[in-house]
């Protein structure tokens, strides 16, 4: 099957050529408020990063905590049910970009 490759080999080195844009580099980017690399996150964490159920809300979280969590999952220092499987290939720049985006959103209590 497609996914039978649960690899846990050396982490920390982003795939060659995986350097994606940090920030909104394109002309006319004012309309692209959400970085394309953050789009998948909300399918589980809820629209705008505000979750309805057991999966944590990420909108409005402290940027340093989001950044540390993503790095922890990526580098294997932090354990979770699924995040370690989803963020392994993220570059440092992508983690900064995603963390900054969700930290800047308004959380449910605010």
């Amino acid at each position: 099957m497609i996914f039978h490759h649960a690899r846990r080999i050396a982490r920390g080195v982003a795939a060659a050529g995986a350097v994606c844009a940090f920030g909104l580099a394109s002309a006319g980017a004012a309309q692209e408020a959400r970085p394309v690399n953050a789009e998948s996150c909300t399918s589980c964490h809820g629209p705008g990063g505000v979750s309805l159920g057991a999966i944590p809300t990420i909108a409005g979280q402290d940027v340093a905590e989001l950044d540390a969590a993503l790095r922890g999952y990526r580098d294997g220092a932090r354990q979770g049910t699924i995040m370690g499987r989803l963020v392994g290939p993220l570059s440092d720049a992508e983690i900064v970009e995603i963390s900054a985006y969700f930290a800047a959103l308004t959380g449910p209590e605010q």
């Binding site: 497609i2 080999i9 499987r85 989803l86 392994g88």
Partner: peptide
């Protein structure tokens, strides 16, 4: 789970290493 990167050209969208699985 699986993780991929869009890329132009040849429709590969391969599962990225060091990610995914059950």
């Amino acid at each position: 789970a699986g993780v991929y990167r869009s890329e132009t050209g040849n429709n590969r969208l391969s599962s990225l290493p060091d990610s995914g699985g059950t």
